[in-house]
Amino acid sequence: MKARFLLAASLFGTACSAAPVDTPASAAKPFVETVVADFTSPWAMTFLPDGRMLVTEKAGQMLLVARDGKSSRKIADVAVDSAGQGGLMDVVPAPGFAENKQVYFSYSAAGPGGKGVVLARGQLTGAAGAETLSGVQELFRASQFVEGNGHYSGRIAFSPDGKYLFFTNGERQKFTPAQDPKSTLGKVLRLTLDGKPAAGNPLAAQGFHPAIWSYGHRNLLGIAFDRAGNLWEQEMGPKGGDEVNLVQPGKNYGWPKASNGSHYDGRDIPDHASGDGYEAPKVWWNPVISPGGLMIYSGKMFPQWQGDAFIGGLSSKALIRVDLDGASARKGDQWAMGARIREVEQGPDGAIWLLEDGGDSQGRLIRLSAPK
């Protein structure tokens, strides 16, 4: 019998997973927390090669933030549909950013048939200190657009060789599209840098949408490569069953046919089980953590955590560490942060940076450094 938990309201619309109940957290924090800035409902951040940051805000603002995080300037207003969980989402510099100054980002938009997630690219132009985002191009949009305001996903990661872009499309709270071979909803996609389906994707010859890399996902809010080139993602489960998955080409991750959680109305979902044909998560939570961003640590400031995954916790108001060991994973620390953590990133010096979710949690930018 799966545990049942009360549904928690989410700042970004309908909650994606149930509220945690007495989830154990590591008491002592082996880092120093410094509040650096405060934003309005931030969603994502990324570091540029010169140490400055780009930060996205839900309503559509993209900010260029100083190296110390204490000052920022708006460089773009992106037209987004910000209802519910929608808004301006992920932002990542291009693999050749030092030369081409290109930035990739995602957002939710309204269009024929409803709403969906869009991948776009722009370029930072102008003199240093006065840059703007120009030449914005839409590269890809989810197939299909549907009604509703949830589970857009929209996370971006580049392959280690810089040749491919991996893009997450949530199943938009519609369940069955995650198993639909013609839809990109509930999928990890592999695209070219121009947003086209990459040649050689594993399921195209079987009649799937040619962009699909893996399927059977729910709401994928973090994706990252480790040093060995393994692709990891985390996604929100329903009422329980938040997951960390090792993403492998052509695999079916089960949603909504299998989950270690249950439907919000109490209906059971078969647990992941050996031989069921679905790829099981490497780590899962019940009670939930409501995972936000995902980062795999490679810095020198915290050498004991090199190679580990860090996840922002929304309803759990926590920072979560997961031990990664090759193709295996296990739960590590969970530190109570007192606020919904939307995003986690590694700074150039190895410090860990967090973005709170906004609303009751404010939207603070926090730097975690090693104790002196």
Rank of each mutant, 00 (worst) to 15 (best):
R121P: 00
Q179V: 03
Q179F: 06
Q334A: 07
L119C: 02
L133G: 00
A110V: 02
V118Y: 01
E147L: 04
K2H: 09
L368V: 14
I289C: 01
A18F: 06
A120F: 01
Y164W: 14
P181A: 02
G312C: 07
R73I: 06
V55P: 00
G359H: 03
I289W: 00
P249Q: 08
A37Y: 02
L185T: 02
Q173H: 09
F31W: 09
V78F: 01
A351K: 12
G292C: 15
M236F: 09
G113P: 06
S71K: 15
R364S: 11
P348S: 15
G111L: 05
T46R: 00
Y215Q: 14
T56Y: 01
I296V: 11
G186D: 03
H151M: 04
P49C: 11
S10A: 15
G254F: 13
S153C: 14
L119M: 15
T184L: 07
K187N: 12
G347D: 11
E243Q: 09
N100M: 14
E356K: 01
R141W: 14
K2P: 09
N100G: 08
F5M: 06
A228H: 08
R73V: 05
F175G: 08
Q102F: 05
P197S: 07
A15P: 14
G195E: 00
D50R: 11
S274I: 13
V244S: 00
K101L: 02
Y264I: 04
P30D: 10
E345K: 15
G277L: 14
I269N: 03
S214L: 07
E99Y: 15
P291T: 05
A211C: 08
R342A: 14
A18S: 03
A109V: 07
D360I: 10
L314H: 12
